[in-house]
Amino acid sequence: MDSQLLAGTLEMLVLQVVTSNPAYGYQITQEVLQRSKCYFELKEGSLYPALHRMEREGFLESYWVEAGPKRRRKYYRATPQGLAALEKKQAEWHRFSTAVNGVLGTPADALA
């Protein structure tokens, strides 16, 4: 995929993943990969800086969970502020995709 297209939607995808349940980094990559039918393969070099930035901005909050001997796991979940931001980004994305689809054709065709 084009990385520039992903960069603009990374935050929205991450927020969407952690909206329903808290998730850790690797889980988020796998969830996005699965939901996008292996289209979005998030690079760790981009994911973690994005997670940390969204946490500093208040869109996400995190907590640690013991995952084994000498192993900890960090979970992220959306904050109310993050949910509002996700809603706003989704609406914007729908308007954008609708417009793009209107130009290009049906979404099914585009996805195919």
Binding site: Y24, G25, Y48, R72
Partner: peptide, 17 residues
């Protein structure tokens, strides 16, 4: 420690996968 633990967990999960 948080950074190292988070990335190490990610790599370990990836290797386990």
């Amino acid at each position: 420690a948080d950074i190292l633990d988070e990335l190490a967990d990610h790599l370990a999960l990836s290797a386990e996968h």
